[in-house]
């Protein structure tokens, strides 16, 4: 979103690099630090029993981008760790290293964080006699306590299980179903019923019209469920004017709303969807199924399957 700031800000990118990560007394291998997607994965083979992660960070601006006569005096750089889920914020002043970068160490306390922690840095200065003004910010990093690998890929979790299993009481009521979507978790979970004869084998088999048709059907179920769950999350935010929520809820809404209401902005589309959901009209349900078809790849999968079947029957003739 375009924004206007009433004083000069730093031109060009302000970049934050995570140089090294110490977890208690050992150092995280670089493979767990993804500098392209800005992700640190903290769930390692060493387990979750650690106290503190210390991140060495360096913040840089484009050479010559920061000018005192233009951007004010008392220039400083502060790194901030922030996690909404645990309401925890930690700010650390970084120090100029003499070569135009600010460096320092940010400490992440394990008891104060649970999932994805944002790490960003802000440049501040006294501008027009107002101290502590933000004149530049970095793109945030994600320090992910639950990630085993620093990938930006987020997917619905897949659990293949017997729905009648003793340790799955929550699935017992769905025991006769081929699959079940739990859209409450983060990430949401797709359960495939191993006790549903042939289903898991079919999905793992080589491509076939039947397999692709089933997969597309699963996809429509998953995405329509996710969409409704995301709408629910938006409704519960407690705002008078519901905003697109964060996390996977926001991702799903941003992806599907344009197909539900193509000529509305996301905010308007969300408001409209919430209204239609409250009114419970069937036309809305049809729109949701329509929108779910795209991420479920319904048209290509089903179209390809039908074509394959036709080809098979023609060649069999």
């Amino acid at each position: 979103m375009k924004r206007l700031v009433p004083y000069p800000t730093v031109a060009g990118p302000v970049e934050l690099a995570v140089v090294r990560v110490r977890v208690d007394d050992w150092t995280l291998p670089v493979q767990l630090v993804n500098t392209t997607d800005r992700i640190v994965a903290l769930h390692t083979d060493r387990g979750t029993d650690w106290n503190e992660a210390r991140l060495t960070v360096a913040v840089t601006t484009a050479p010559g981008a920061l000018r005192p006569e233009h951007h004010g005096r008392d220039q400083a750089c502060t790194a901030v760790l922030r996690e909404r889920a645990t309401n925890s914020v930690t700010a650390v002043r970084l120090h100029p290293d003499g070569s135009g970068a600010w460096t320092g160490e940010v400490s992440l306390d394990h008891t104060r964080h649970a999932g994805r922690v944002l790490l960003e840095a802000h440049l501040t200065a006294t501008v027009d006699d107002v101290a502590g003004r933000i004149i530049g910010s970095t793109e945030p990093w994600n320090v992910d306590l639950e990630a085993r690998t620093p990938t930006a890929v987020r997917t619905v979790r897949l659990v293949q299980v017997d729905f009648a299993a003793d340790d799955r009481p929550e699935l017992h009521r769905f025991r006769a179903d081929p699959w079940h979507v739990d859209a409450w978790g983060d990430p949401p979970v797709l359960y495939l019923n191993k006790a549903f004869e042939g289903l898991v084998d079919l999905l793992h088999a080589d491509a076939s019209p039947t397999r692709d048709t089933v997969a597309a059907q699963v996809g429509v179920d998953v995405w329509s469920t996710l969409f409704l769950a995301a709408l629910g999350a938006a409704a519960e935010s407690g705002d008078d004017e519901p905003a697109v929520p964060g996390g996977w809820h926001g991702t799903v809404l941003k992806r599907m709303l344009p197909d539900v209401f193509p000529d509305l902005s996301p905010a308007d589309a969300l408001a409209e969807a919430l209204k239609r959901r409250r009114e419970g009209d069937a036309g809305f349900h049809a729109l949701v199924l329509h929108a779910a078809g795209r991420p479920a790849r319904l048209n290509p999968m089903l179209g390809g399957a039908i074509r394959a079947l036709r080809r098979a029957s023609e060649s069999g003739r």
């Binding site: 493979q31 890929v153 997917t155 619905v156 979790r157 897949l158 692709d212 344009p258």
Partner: peptide, 28 residues
């Protein structure tokens, strides 16, 4: 220098793309 494999190595091939949450609505 390989990163650990993301989970879901047991994911059936046709579901892999379908279950991705972050794929952009490309080119729309």
């Amino acid at each position: 220098v390989a990163r650990p494999e993301p989970g879901g190595g047991d994911m059936p091939a046709p579901l892999r793309d379908i279950l991705r949450l972050d794929a952009a609505g490309a080119g729309r």
